[in-house]
């Protein structure tokens, strides 16, 4: 049987951009409208029957979600990653996209996962419902605007330790100088612990100490 080169099949889709990354990886970029057609084509005409994964990426700055469909062909021994972008939507008008469940059964799992983690509704997917986060009522947590670090700081209490050695150091005028959460919550680590930061921290400590003294008197 004459094999049709994969590019020829892919090029049937309007506006497609094909990037051959290496022998077993092809990246294609298509419009959201053309993506189901593309998947149908490569499944039906080029044996790409194994849906390896669907990934959602939140490009918050572009106000878009990127959906990536990784499809493998056992015969071609090649993986096509089909990228498309959809509107990110808003709280009142969540993002929607069409399900590929009728083409690939495993889409059930991936689409449900994306629905739960990113809030994208896939029309035609059999189970648009909660799965992992059954007791979660907040925003979909994988969204870039959900700050997990802040959530943790607000929700959980760090253990406070008071070992003897720390007491000794504190008595000598030392003790805790830079807490790990100070470094982490700053987000950008490269600005920390320089002398200004430390001076500020020291000044704050001195002030706090003065306040304490005031209380004692």
């Amino acid at each position: 049987m004459n094999k049709v080169p994969i590019d020829e099949i892919l090029n049937k889709v309007n506006g497609i951009k094909i990037t051959h990354k290496r022998k077993t990886r092809i990246r294609v970029d298509v419009d959201a409208d053309s993506l189901p057609t593309l998947l149908e084509l490569i499944k039906g005409r080029a044996s790409y029957i194994h849906l390896s994964a669907i990934t959602c990426v939140d490009w918050i700055a572009d106000n878009q979600f990127e959906l990536v469909y990784h499809v493998w062909s056992y015969e071609e021994k090649c993986l096509i990653s089909a990228h498309t972008r959809i509107d990110r939507g808003s709280e009142s008008n969540p993002a929607k996209y069409v399900s590929v469940y009728d083409l690939f059964k495993p889409a059930d799992f991936f689409e449900r996962d994306i629905f739960e983690m990113y809030g994208v509704t896939f029309i035609g997917s059999p189970r648009m419902e909660k799965f992992i986060l059954t007791e979660w009522n907040g925003v979909p947590p994988m969204l870039k605007d959900f700050d997990a670090e802040a959530y943790v700081q607000e929700t959980f209490k760090w253990t406070d330790y008071n070992p003897d050695w720390l007491q000794e150091l504190t008595d000598q005028g030392g003790g805790i100088a830079v807490k790990p959460e100070d470094i982490r919550t700053a987000g950008n680590t490269h600005n920390m612990s320089t002398h200004r930061e430390r001076d500020k921290a020291k000044a704050a400590a001195v002030k706090a100490n003065e306040k304490m003294q005031g209380w004692k008197q």
């Binding site: 992992i132 059954t134 994988m142 870039k144």
Partner: peptide, 18 residues
């Protein structure tokens, strides 16, 4: 299937770490 008992949010954590 009912998951969620050991969800640690690895994928989210990874976005916040070097």
């Amino acid at each position: 299937a009912d998951a969620g008992y050991l969800h640690r949010g690895f994928e989210k954590l990874m976005e916040g770490r070097l």
